[in-house]
Amino acid sequence: MTVKIVTAGVDGVIVYAAVDGLEQAHQQVCGWQHTLEQAAPAWLQDSVVSYRSLYLQYDVQRVDHLFVRHWLMQHCVGTETTPAANAPPPKVHTLPVCYSLPDDHDRARIAEHHGISEQQVIDRHCQQEYRVYALGFAPGFAFLGEVEPGLAMPRLPTPRQRVPAGAVAIADRQTAIYPTQSPGGWNIIGRCPVTLFNAGRNPPALLRVGDTVRFKAITADDFERLWSERGNHD
């Protein structure tokens, strides 16, 4: 596979990874973003890593499409030896999740779907390390992957009007935590009491693209205690 640099408007390009596997592809685009941010050229306005791609926005008063394309080939996408070569070391988070609250609507459905027990759903969700593949949807919302196939679950046919803040959920082979109460169509399996987004904090989002996340089961009592300590939740 070769690196693909594609036009994304008068002031943007999107670069696609040159490797097949999702994790490797993501490591590669994270590496490119890291290189770009280390160099911090004055024309760089924004960069977004998501799964297999890196979108970047440049200042069209300073440079143009050809300049940016050439710069990327010279400094970034043409130079590394392995996909992970330039990636920064990932930060590892262990997040507490309570899997025993009454409003976790979909745990039993997932268990039934795969012919396993609810405890096995919890075990499978906890036993794996997940990678933050992208941020989006809502402030602090991180797309984590990949959930093992024996836990994957399609989105709900009709999204719920209200998913509570902290809901831990699965959609296909992705898992995530809803940072605030919002509508949502993912399958809810638990609640996480940790504040994922705080506009006053720098950076505001706890989870960053490329980070690693592990879930640890906690009791309902622990959840209540941590939830009350969390403050400003809605």
Binding site: A8, G9, D11, G12, I14, S47, V48, V49, S50, Y51, R52, S53, L54, Y55, L56, Q57, A134, G136, F143
Partner: peptide, 8 residues
């Protein structure tokens, strides 16, 4: 796969 989207 979801990817970054610019204005417009």
């Amino acid at each position: 796969a979801s990817e970054g989207i610019g204005l417009g």
